[in-house]
Design a protein around this nucleic acid. Structure first.
Length: 488
RNA sequence: GGCGGCGUAGCCAAGCAGCUAAGGCGGCGGUCUGCAAAACCGCUAUUCCCGGGUGCAAAUCCCGGCGCCGCCUCCA
């Protein structure tokens, strides 16, 4: 398995610290707002990576945090005049709603920053004791100059950072780049007691404390959006390694950002498309397909046109399952080697999808039912839901089989006016029909509006029409049709 | 200004030195079909932002431009 490591800016062969085990930490959300599609990109990427490791036989320990205490959450709580914890909980709930719908596998733990205050205090004390941190009126700061490899992740140099400095100036800070480990108590703000004074944690320290708590002082993989490289992950490395004298993380993986109108999708600029909104309009698998169509590290522009494109592509996958369903009987979980190899190469999901579409074309040409297993397994490996309800859509909840039978009889007797009326009626119930040589396939189209009255009107008119015809001449097949549609 | 990334057909997107430049969406023409839909066949990049260079060989490596994006402040 080769993965692009931000630390080296190269694809490196993945070697786990412990044989057959991978420990992964993904920077989750700061729960000050609802998840958008940009967040989903990261979590879907992490989800596919994790599933692939499991497929390869690794034991995966996967942790994803919630940062539930920070400036913006406090700010928001003040605005809404509710407890800061309620703000966090609201968006945590929403996160799980979205993530479960998207079929993102649950992490082994979802630590919240506010539950790890003690661990953070211990870390800060260690840093104070070792001389990496110092105290001012406004809090405890990490002294960047003391950590000689500061900047090794983002490839930034301290003096260059200072040159561009947009960092807020604090008179007491030794260096504008020094970052807060702990913020001193302020009125009307949540606080905790600590040996070095009451207050609350700064940003960055929670991820060090939580990741090390679950995964140890050195672990395999740390995932996050590209925008977290600096300062967040750089600072995590500094404070963690300064405290432990051990390498913090072996592989840092960062995904490219999702853009909207040419700009980064972000909460702060209100330039975003909410995940729950996308899920109102599109099946989760379509959104997953949209996200996996581009390599995880590329910048990727979101437009509704592209979601529509993913929807068309998904339709082809559905067609495959409609016609290949008999292959299910001999199902075996097998993923083609080409797809495994593509994923082994820095998780090349676009290539893997290309191979899936090739198999689908192959199926339509050859009708080789063994392709069912290959396509199904590959899609499952990529985390697609593929529930019965979605790609197969052969629901019979409305019990329409007799109508289909009646229509078949009508077609056999070339009574196309009758068969077309039945088809139109069924369209009003939301069904689409497909005539093949052997049978008529029907499936429910979720976007079609159901109009039961119209359906009834057409069926009733049809019944009358047939009754009239029967008065003039006794066609046995007409009787049969009437018998079949009587119940509707 | 500094650091990083990207620029491949109408659109999206793989490929990152050597088989005819994957795959999808869209479009056009055809086959099949009562109709519809789906599917299938064919066409839709002699060329990979531009200009140089190094190789027997470059979309792929190097240099110089141009354009877009990200980070340097909170951010997946």
């Amino acid at each position: 398995m080769y993965l692009f490591n931000t630390l080296s800016r190269e694809k490196e062969e993945f070697k786990p610290l412990k044989e057959n085990e991978v420990r992964i930490y993904t920077c989750g959300m700061t729960v000050q707002d609802a998840p958008h599609l940009g967040h989903l990109r990261t979590f879907i990427f992490a989800d596919v990576l994790r599933r692939f490791f499991e497929f390869l036989g690794y034991k995966v320990i996967y942790i994803q945090n919630f940062t539930d205490i920070d400036d913006k959450i406090i700010q928001r709580a003040k605005e809404e005049k509710i407890d800061w914890r309620d703000i966090g909980q609201r968006y945590i709930d929403e996160y799980f709603y979205v993530s479960d719908l998207m079929n993102i596998k649950r992490a082994d733990a979802y630590p919240k920053a506010s539950q790890f205050i003690l661990e953070m205090i211990n870390l800060i004390q260690k840093l104070l004791k070792k001389g990496y941190a110092y105290k001012t009126k406004s809090g405890i700061y990490f002294e960047v100059e003391k950590f000689k490899t500061y900047g090794k992740l983002s490839k930034k140099k301290i003096d260059e950072l200072l040159a561009g400095a947009r960092v807020e100036v604090d008179e007491e800070k030794k260096n504008p780049l020094d970052f807060a480990l702990w913020k001193s108590y302020k009125e009307n703000e949540p606080y905790w007691y600590a040996p070095f004074g009451r207050g609350r944690p700064g940003w960055h320290i929670e991820c060090s404390a939580m990741s090390m708590h679950y995964l140890g002082e050195t672990f395999d993989i740390h995932i996050g959006g590209e925008d977290l490289i600096f300062p967040h992950h750089e600072n995590e490395i500094a404070q963690s390694e300064a405290a432990t004298n051990k390498p913090f993380v072996k592989y840092f993986l960062h995904n490219g950002l999702l853009l909207l109108k040419g700009e980064k999708m972000a909460k702060s600029t209100k330039n975003y498309f909410l995940a729950k909104e996308a899920l109102r309009e599109y099946e989760p698998d379509i959104i997953r397909l949209f996200l996996l169509k581009a390599h995880y590290r590329s910048p990727y522009e979101f437009t509704t046109e592209r979601l529509e494109e993913a929807k068309s592509q998904w339709q082809r996958i559905k067609e495959f399952f409609i016609f290949a369903k008999k292959g299910k009987e001999a199902f075996r979980f097998i993923v083609p080697e080409k797809i495994v190899n593509a994923l082994l190469d820095d998780l090349n999901t676009p290539f893997a999808l290309g191979e899936i579409f090739k198999m689908i074309e192959e199926f339509f040409k050859t009708k080789d039912l063994s392709l069912y297993s290959l396509v199904y397994s590959s899609l499952k490996l990529l985390g697609f839901k593929l529930t019965e309800k979605e790609p197969l859509y052969l629901t019979t909840e409305d019990n329409i089989e007799n109508l289909i039978k009646a229509r078949t009889i009508a077609r056999k007797n070339k009574k196309y006016d009758i068969s077309d009326k039945i088809r139109t009626a069924l369209n009003y119930l939301g069904y689409e029909l497909r005539d093949t040589n052997e049978e008529t396939i029907f499936f429910k189209k979720e976007e079609k509006e159901v109009n039961k009255e119209e359906f009834k009107k057409i069926v009733d008119a049809l019944k009358k029409e047939i009754e009239e015809q029967l008065k003039e001449e006794e066609f046995p097949y007409l009787k049969e049709i009437l018998e079949l549609i009587k119940e509707y």
